[in-house]
Nucleic acid binder design. Structure first.
Length: 271
DNA sequence: CAGGTC
DNA sequence: ACTGG
């Protein structure tokens, strides 16, 4: 059973809306209609957005020797990793760098309202996510008006790269090969690449090392020193240690730990 | 200070 | 270095 609201509000998906008993998710040019069980309809092809094929029992077994993860998979039962539209995911996490989740949501909504096609579904008005060509052809001055600041240059450059085919066939690449491809885009470093690799490319060994996870890995596992790595080499060393410790479902483990860290923080979560 | 990058 | 909770 999928925990739909828990998954949508876990910092991996930003463009969703709760209307009545349904959730509507903007996923590229698609609108997904979701109820408590998962995706039930869509304006385009239905995607396996909640990765229903993942072997959750097998994941539980791989966490058996880890008391913390064993507790968290019960506390947050039904929390899933999503399988998102690649381009929207790239832009989402470029926007996320050195920002906060309420602001990321606002920035992405503004991008849809200014540059995405308007449509209606179930008599509700929606704006789709713009295509790579549209954002690539937009002056950075106008992208900046969405509140993204200096990230506007990165958004335009990454959009042009994807429009020109940089990421074609990325689903057939290995983790490292896909990472190298993604990191060619401006605004995409190791952490943002790991988000894309996990949430769009299905690489469950990808572990986005953000401030929260870095802190948790230090405090609960004694891995790293709790500070953000500032070179790719530092990031890679830490990533290897973290992945070795969390196992083949490290990406899932990361999402449970991220949820725990944020829920335990002093500040009430705003979204 | 915020799901980092150049 | 942008930006706002």
């Amino acid at each position: 059973m999928i925990d739909v609201p828990g998954t949508l509000s876990s910092g991996q998906v930003f463009l969703w809306r709760h209307v009545g008993v349904f959730w509507y998710v903007i996923d590229g040019q698609n609108i997904l209609k979701v109820d408590d069980t998962g995706v039930i309809d869509a304006t385009r092809t239905i995607t396996d957005f909640f990765r229903c094929g993942d072997d959750i029992d097998r994941m539980h077994e791989s966490f058996a020797q880890d008391p913390l993860l064993t507790e968290l998979i019960h506390r947050y039962e039904g929390l899933r990793i999503t399988n998102q539209n690649l381009f929207q995911c790239v832009i989402s996490f470029i926007v996320s760098a050195n920002s906060n989740i309420p602001r990321i949501r606002r920035n992405l909504q503004d991008i849809c309202h200014r540059f995405g096609d308007k449509t209606a579904y179930d008599d509700i008005a929606f704006c789709l996510f713009p295509t790579p060509a549209v954002l690539a052809g937009t002056d950075t001055h106008h992208i900046r008006e969405c509140g993204v600041g200096y990230r506007a240059q990165h958004i335009q450059g990454a959009s042009a790269a994807i429009r020109d085919g940089l990421c074609d066939g990325i689903d057939r690449m290995s983790y490292k090969e896909a990472q190298g491809t993604l990191c060619e885009m401006p605004g995409v470093g190791r952490k943002v690449a790991d988000c894309i690799l996990l949430f769009s490319c299905g690489h469950l060994e990808a572990v986005p090392l953000d401030r929260w996870i870095i802190r948790v890995m230090h405090e609960h596992y004694g891995i790293g020193d709790g500070t953000t790595p500032h070179t790719t080499r530092q990031y890679d060393i830490l990533h290897d240690d973290v992945r070795d410790r969390l196992g083949p479902y490290a990406g899932y483990a990361q999402q449970y730990l991220f949820k725990m860290a944020r829920n335990n923080s002093e500040k009430p979560l705003k979204w």
